[in-house]
Simulated scan of single mutants.
Amino acid sequence: MSKGTAQQNQSGGEIPVVGRRQPCPCGSGKRYKACHGAEGGAAKVRVNRPFEGLAAECELVAMREFVPSATARLPLASGDEEIELATVLPMAAAALVRTDGTSFVGLQVQTKSGDVSRDLARAVEWVRQAEPGQSLPVVGPEDAPAGTVPTRLQDLVDPEAALDVRVHEDFSWWMPEGVEPTGEVAMSLERANAAIMPTQRLEAEGLHAAYWVDATDRAHLRWVRPEPEEKLVSALARLSARGELALDSDSRYAGSFRAHGLLVPVWDLDREKHPTEWVEPAVALGRRLDEALASLDEQPLDAAERRARDGLRGRQVTVR
Rank of each mutant, 00 (worst) to 15 (best):
L85K: 07
V213L: 08
A246K: 14
M63N: 01
Y211W: 03
Q200D: 00
L189Q: 12
A215F: 10
G261C: 04
R238D: 13
A303T: 00
A186V: 03
V124M: 15
D214N: 07
W126R: 02
A204F: 05
A161Q: 13
R73E: 07
A241E: 11
R313N: 15
C24F: 15
F66C: 02
T5E: 04
V67Q: 06
S256E: 02
E52V: 02
V18R: 11
A55W: 12
K33W: 04
G101A: 08
S295A: 15
V283R: 15
P198S: 13
V45Y: 01
S249P: 05
A77W: 08
I83F: 09
A123S: 05
A215M: 09
K44P: 05
L60C: 06
V45H: 00
W174H: 05
E229F: 07
R320G: 14
W212K: 08
S188C: 13
T199N: 08
L89G: 08
E203F: 10
L85D: 09
Q154K: 14
V233Y: 01
G114V: 04
E305T: 11
L163H: 04
R287S: 08
W212E: 06
C58S: 04
P265V: 01
L232H: 05
D290Q: 15
E272N: 12
R20I: 11
S113I: 04
V17R: 15
D100M: 10
R98I: 09
E291N: 06
D290I: 10
M63H: 01
P176S: 06
V139C: 14
E227Y: 14
